[in-house]
Amino acid sequence: MTTASTSGPARAMGPSLQQQRARAAFWFLAPMLFALFLVAAWPLMRTIWFSFTDATGNIYDGKFVWFQNYVRVQTLDSGKTMYRGVFFDPKWWNAVYNTVRFSVVSVIFETVLGLVIALVLNAEFKGRGIVRAAILIPWAIPTIVSAKMWAWMLNDQYGILNDILLNLHLISEKIAWTARDDTAMIAVLIVDIWKTAPFMALLCLAGLQMVPRDIYEAARIDGVHPIKVFFKVTLPLIRPAVAVAVIFRMLDALRIFDLVYVLTPNSTATKTMSVISRENLIDFSKFGYGSAESTTLFAILAIFVSLYIWLGRVDLTGETSR
């Protein structure tokens, strides 16, 4: 592939130039790293610190308890041994299961849908501008509003979704989407996919836009079937862009909070890791325990992303030439 490039032209030049560039790189990175360190590092460290304390309503009263929020062995008066802490909390593992299930399904749907929409938007047709703006609307509406809006549309008695499905004879009676355990997750997925597919579409589109047009031209002249062009040429070229989009969608999906919180706040079928750690942090005055859950969530996310980067062979540095 002729477009492949790696770490800049330094290879072609002398060592002093490479040094000079490295120095420049440091100064280019410094402001961002400084900002990240100043603003993000402190709260993150605080959360990890709190996870080792038994802090409750008043966060400064906690004392250091090592790993007791994570693992604790308790011997009851009856002589029975109980395992406690986040690692032995069935509610937590239920939340992990919910979150992972939700993330995998939603990200797959969003990626495919996003890619399809991006391909359509990349084609030349009349009214493309309007369509492109229209596509972005779901992403543009604040989540707290769109969640409420959907809760309204999904309502069993006066929700429009049931009405449409009834009119189309797809269902025979009104479904209480957010109330039933078996449909609550579907409801959350419907809304999330609707909301975030545009995000994926826009990023895929940006990737597509960076693909030089003459490649298509060449393929067309050679009479290659468009589907083959897509899989053999387009997809490999936009793969890095899609991979990054998927990572960030994955991170967002695994941390999902507001949508579930508004749509199905207390259903055990949809409670996610963020929802349950918020519950402990804020509602139940278990600040230490909630922080331990957040830290575990952080660890799970880190593992997930590392696995994805490793298994998906996402090229972090660009050093392996394609």
Binding site: L36, P43, T47, F50, L251, S274, S294, V305
Partner: peptide, 16 residues
Amino acid sequence: ILAVSMFPQIAVLAGM
């Protein structure tokens, strides 16, 4: 850099 997006928002609020 990516690690910054790995903490749930609600958890970093107190520190923020």
